[in-house]
Nucleic acid binder design. Sequence first.
DNA 1: TGCGTATATAATCATATCGTTATATAATCA
DNA 2: TGATTATATAACGATATGATTATATACGCA
Lengths: 115, 115
Amino acid sequence: METKPAMDIQKSALLLKLLGDKTRLTMMKLLQSHECCVCEFTAIFEASQPAISQHLRKLKDAGLVQETRRGQWIFYSIRRDHEYAPFVEDVLNHFPDQNERLTNLEKQGLRISCE
Amino acid sequence: METKPAMDIQKSALLLKLLGDKTRLTMMKLLQSHECCVCEFTAIFEASQPAISQHLRKLKDAGLVQETRRGQWIFYSIRRDHEYAPFVEDVLNHFPDQNERLTNLEKQGLRISCE
DNA sequence: TGCGTATATAATCATATCGTTATATAATCA
DNA sequence: TGATTATATAACGATATGATTATATACGCA
């Protein structure tokens, strides 16, 4: 019989703090269903490139996302191998998907696609 | 057929930020199963009384907890009528209960009981 | 009524957070 | 190779956060 190790409330508080920012929370929700590159995020959030990079850095440092370079672009994706990934996904599952934000980008021709 | 209104990701981020502090998160977990008064929290967290009061104030301002005076003491309890109470509880349910902290208090004779 | 206990609040300070500006690095393309 | 685009990082500043100290308020009790 399998038992899950109990979650550490202290480590979880740090994760919740990371998710407790509307930009990062929305990023994570988007990443739940799509890989995204930095320039897409800057377009979606109408934020500066360094601001976006710094949010992504925090998520990466916490092990919540990972990057892959594809040519000129660096794509971010969610890490489902994080110790508390199921917890994070449970939290994210409460929110409506934010894919409209991506389709809006497509309409503007700003969606990156380098498959 | 009933439909739940979609959660607002922006408001949720504010809640997660509140929960993203180990003291407040543990408080909320304790309050999930017990009412607690301020002096119990100060004993549990070995924190100053004003520090605890200020955490409770934030939780109260957000509508997550409520207070009831009973004689000398003011007891805090979780508000299950908060718009996003089910979300908050879902988050809290991931953590092991913290009741040991309360039973430890009892052993020290510090648990308040004014029924 | 006066004292002790429980709690809240205000003022203050150190640190954290988040954004901006400036600059560095890496890849693409002409 | 040089220019352009995408991204990261460093330095800095404004604001937010959380703790402490000091003080105020409310209740219970002698």
